[in-house]
Design a protein around this nucleic acid. Structure first.
Lengths: 168, 168
DNA sequence: TAGACGTAGA
DNA sequence: TCTACGTCTA
């Protein structure tokens, strides 16, 4: 049967290369690429503070992350009242958001995974996009005037590009 | 990688025997024992009405299903305001509840799966308990005076017992 | 105990 | 789009 629980780590995961595709969050968890089964930001303790290890980014499915040639604008987590995704509140600098922000000073690398639609439009698939540096973050206004964090991540140079076939 | 999507069917699933244990809802889905990844009641269309095919019953994890020697009292689904499990409303005779109630007249068999705690207390495991007949249902009052359906299912005689080891 | 970019089917 | 006895980590 299935197994779960990969190992939490920062940086490249042995055996996983840019462009590798997975079908379920549980697979990302098993292989250790992204342990957070539901959340988009995964993180771990490093010394006395939390550091983000990986994020799942999507341009569709109601999310508005933006992929450019060599950087990524990623929306923070939280701000859903009662988990509702219809009632909004200000996002807070805690948990995943804080862990992601902590990466800026320390220059800790973050794995980026793209959440893409499946061909049949049922659920998502996940493509590993490589290592990024978190450069900065700002605050934008969401649909209800609520605060949403926007993190700017820069893709580490020298990594292979994702084959365009992945996006179809 | 993992695969999903078993086939919806009523009655015994080929290859699955009483006492077989599974670790995830996704496994139940894959093997076709219970396709509903989140809901406790699985059902399908049969002619012009819905019939329940399987249910997942638990005595713990906040649920109050009761297993007796040869029958089971199973609580209906729904009644959680905003999916909150803290704010309660009356359960309605729709979806899974309706499909389960429909089984009474037609005497359609329902597979019963026991949701049990794992030894490490993380998450659940699932043990197939065999086929049951839905005999009747009533309405009880929940913690907030809200209506909760209670279905009485009788275990089909002649089926082997679940090994007691499963419960430890 | 609560929070989170789950997942499938109606 | 919505519901549902998910599943994990902090």
């Amino acid at each position: 049967g299935m197994q779960v629980n990969g190992v939490s780590m920062i940086g490249q995961v042995p055996g996983v290369e840019v462009g590798d595709e997975f079908q379920y969050k549980a697979e990302l968890n098993l292989i250790g690429l992204h342990l957070n089964m539901a959340g988009g930001i995964d993180y771990m303790g490093r010394g006395d503070k939390m550091l983000a290890t990986s994020i799942v980014a999507s341009q569709d499915s109601g999310y508005s992350d933006r992929f450019e040639s060599d950087f990524l604008i990623y929306s923070g987590e939280g701000g859903n009242v009662l988990g509702n995704r219809k009632l909004f509140d200000n996002q807070k600098m805690v948990r995943g958001n804080l862990a992601l922000a902590n990466c800026i000073r320390v220059k800790s690398l973050v794995r980026v995974i793209r959440g893409l639609k499946r061909p049949d439009n049922k659920g998502k698939r996940y493509v590993y996009d490589g290592l990024y540096n978190v450069q900065e973050y700002g605050v934008e206004n969401g649909p209800a005037g609520n605060a949403i964090f926007k993190f700017k991540l820069r893709r580490l140079p020298g990594q292979p590009s994702i084959c365009w076939k992945h996006f179809f």
